[in-house]
Design a binder for these strands. Structure first.
Length: 257
DNA sequence: TAGGCCATCTGGTCCT
DNA sequence: AGGACCAGATGGCCTA
């Protein structure tokens, strides 16, 4: 319709604005939306001043009493709110896309909303099952090492902290421990780690997933992308090791509507 | 050109 | 009363 005087900022979250999902473009997208909003508000404010200069401070009219111009102004305000609401929703959707394990990049088509939601659901389910698997492995590893310790503690008094610090032979245990300890930040780390930065997709030639995500399905060690990196400390996590590339089966998993 | 996806408008409903 | 939320309608853009 032509009721929106600020239609120049329509499709503010359209693919051509956000397909380059670098931090800069995301910011510029927000800036663009803010610019649109401010433009809209200023135009509406000036319009409102012109149309309602006489009823300032007066008693509020019921909708049936509103003049045609006032009804139109009200309609514009409602439309503006709805537009802003949908923009916020799209921003949240973009934020979700940013942390989703699919190849980002200018050559890759942006996930549709429905695909984003379906993929997110499957991703959460996959992470949950992987976490359960990790917990089982942690239990196995610790129960095994506890038996070994019981044999050696007769000669060496080892504190629990020292135990974990003196188990370089168990990078698996370290990774798993840190994984379980920092599971809620796994996505954050994933999105911010240099090797999995969305701006440098490992393979942008398909609407698929990062190789480490494939690793999530088959090799639990790759979950150590959530390993806590301490400054100055050698990193045993597998994320810092070259990862084998593998074809993804998650793509089909995510697309089974 | 059909179909998918999207933004926007609009009216209704619910909540504060 | 005002705002948030929702769903239907509509039209534009893009791709196979």
């Amino acid at each position: 319709m032509d009721s929106d005087a600020s239609s120049t900022c329509s499709r503010s979250s359209s693919p051509d604005l956000v397909v380059d999902d670098s931090a800069g473009s995301f910011f510029s997208n927000k800036m663009f939306q803010k610019y649109c909003q401010e433009n809209r508000q200023s135009s509406e404010a000036s319009q409102g001043r012109m149309e309602h200069c006489s009823d300032g401070g007066g008693k509020a009219k019921s909708r049936s009493e509103l003049s045609k111009e006032e009804m139109q102004d009200l309609r514009l305000k409602v439309n503006s709110r709805e537009r802003k609401r949908m923009h916020d929703l799209n921003q949240a959707m973009d934020g979700l896309r940013e942390v989703m394990p699919y190849a980002h990049g200018p050559s890759v088509r942006k996930l549709s909303k429905i695909s984003t939601l379906l993929l997110a659901r499957n991703y959460i389910l996959m992470l949950s099952s992987s976490l359960e698997e990790m917990k089982k492995l942690v239990g196995d590893v610790y129960s095994g090492s506890a038996a070994a310790q019981s044999r050696s503690t007769a000669h060496h008094a080892i504190t629990p902290a020292a135990t974990s610090a003196h188990l370089p032979l168990h990078p698996l245990a370290q990774s798993l421990h840190s994984l379980v300890g920092s599971a809620p930040t796994a996505l954050q780390h994933h999105s911010s780690s240099p090797s999995s930065a969305p701006h440098s997709p490992p393979s942008a030639t398909f609407l698929g997933f990062h190789a480490p995500v494939q690793g999530l399905l088959k090799d639990p060690l790759h979950l150590s992308s959530s390993y806590r990196h301490f400054p100055g400390m050698p990193c045993p996590c597998t994320l810092c090791q070259p990862l084998p590339t593998a074809t993804s089966t998650l793509h089909s998993l995510s697309m089974n509507k």
